Computed example of a mutant assay.
Amino acid sequence: MTATVHPLRPEKPSLKPLMALVAPGLNAVNRVILERMQSPVALIPELAGHLIAGGGKRMRPMLTLGCAAALDYQGERHHKLAAAVEFIHTATLLHDDVVDGSDLRRGRATANTIWGNEASVLVGDFLFSRSFELMVEDGSLKVLKILSHASAVIAEGEVHQLTAQRVVETSEDSYLQIIQAKTAALFSAACQIAAVVSEQDDATEASVEAYGRNLGIAFQLVDDAIDYVSDAETMGKDIGDDFRDGKVTLPVILAYARGDEVARKFWQRAMTGRANGEAELQEAIERLHSTGAIADTMARARLYGSRAIDSLSRLPATAARAALIETVEFAIQRAY
């Protein structure tokens, strides 16, 4: 089914409706997170707390809580599961920053910069383990299957991205497979488990899973675009970080495919790290705009965002559903 491309609201969308909706539940989730990241080994809560308290929006656990509200779930199982989702996400961030050699996340020094790569990897492993403890405590094999599968898919996506790094000939289809794995898998799982704990039918479960998956793809595509048009104050990282790291994201894939021989040689030099200084970054930005690569990446994000909104059509028209819809609009329009 072709998605309807929904017109974006004239005022700037916000996460505030979702945050207000889930505030009591998120307080419960934060209590679980604080409790479960404790350890007699002092470095573990110190390092984990640095990242967990680092200004993240808790987007993924908020999606678990928001979908549960939209499905009128009245229990509390989703609190521990939302914490498990956040632990999975935090663990992947710790590992990603080591792999990428990043020194800044959300405007703060990364854990690996402060404590070193070894500690970051091991604390990431600890958080993964905590997430599985929470899943097992829930007692649902279906929940365990969904979240454990998502964890495996995320790891596959990260390895796939590593093999594609600096390979400027990467296809759009291959790149979409990467972001569906490394980003969208946890978004979809976070939403799907809300349907499981609220004992929804298969069609409703599939609807919220599709919502999360398409939102996750849209979210990552927007990240790809604004890496070339935003700034550290807005994004918590410097403009062009993907460019300097040789990450072949969709804007680069599109610009390379549309370029002449001169342009393709430029992208090959830049993505392999032979010429990726500030002058080359400015040239890259100009080429991305002149080929329409940024605009078309955003157009694809809007398409996946519309698919996410369409997926909610089975849900009753409540304030919770409206908040989930505005969350999609926020994801697409942020930093603009």
Rank of each mutant, 00 (worst) to 15 (best):
A257Y: 12
D96N: 12
K80F: 13
W115F: 13
H50T: 04
D173H: 11
I294L: 13
F266S: 01
T2H: 14
Y256E: 02
S39Y: 04
Y228A: 03
A320M: 06
S171R: 01
E280T: 06
F219T: 02
K145F: 06
A295H: 14
H149Q: 11
L34E: 06
M298Y: 02
T327A: 00
G49L: 10
G216T: 02
S140W: 08
S306R: 00
R166A: 15
T90Q: 01
A301V: 07
M62T: 03
A210Y: 14
V196H: 05
D96V: 00
S207R: 02
L147F: 09
A335T: 13
G49F: 09
S102I: 10
S198D: 03
Q333A: 14
F219C: 06
E46I: 15
T183H: 00
M1R: 10
L26H: 01
L127C: 10
A195F: 01
G124T: 03
S198V: 03
S171Q: 00
T113G: 14
L81A: 06
F132L: 02
E280I: 06
L63Q: 11
D241L: 14
L71G: 02
H79S: 06
D72P: 09
M235L: 15
V32E: 04
I309A: 12
L71S: 01
S171K: 03
L186C: 15
A195V: 00
L288S: 00
F128H: 03
R166P: 08
A295L: 12
Y211I: 10
A295P: 11
I44C: 13
G124N: 04
V229N: 13
A83W: 02
A152M: 15
R9S: 12
G246A: 00
L93W: 09
S306Q: 05
G101T: 08
G246Q: 03
M1K: 06
E86I: 02
E205V: 03
L254E: 07
F187K: 11
M37N: 04
T272A: 15
D223M: 05
P45I: 01
R130V: 11
M235R: 12
E118C: 06
A70R: 07
I44N: 04
G54A: 08
T291L: 05
V197C: 13
E137Y: 06
V167D: 15
D100W: 01
F128K: 01
R269L: 12
R58P: 10
M19P: 07
T327N: 05
A190H: 09
R31K: 15
E278H: 14
V197N: 09
V85N: 03
L122Y: 14
Q220D: 01
G25Q: 02
A53K: 14
H95R: 14
P61W: 04
G305L: 08
E172S: 10
G54E: 02
S102N: 09
A68S: 00
G277V: 13
G277T: 13
T170H: 00
I217E: 01
V229R: 13
A164I: 11
L43P: 07
Q177T: 11
V248W: 01
A308I: 05
K145N: 05
A111S: 04
A164W: 09
P40I: 05
R307W: 10
H149G: 13
M271Y: 08
F187P: 13
D138W: 13
P13K: 10
A335I: 07
E172H: 10
A331S: 12
Q180D: 12
V167F: 15
G116S: 06
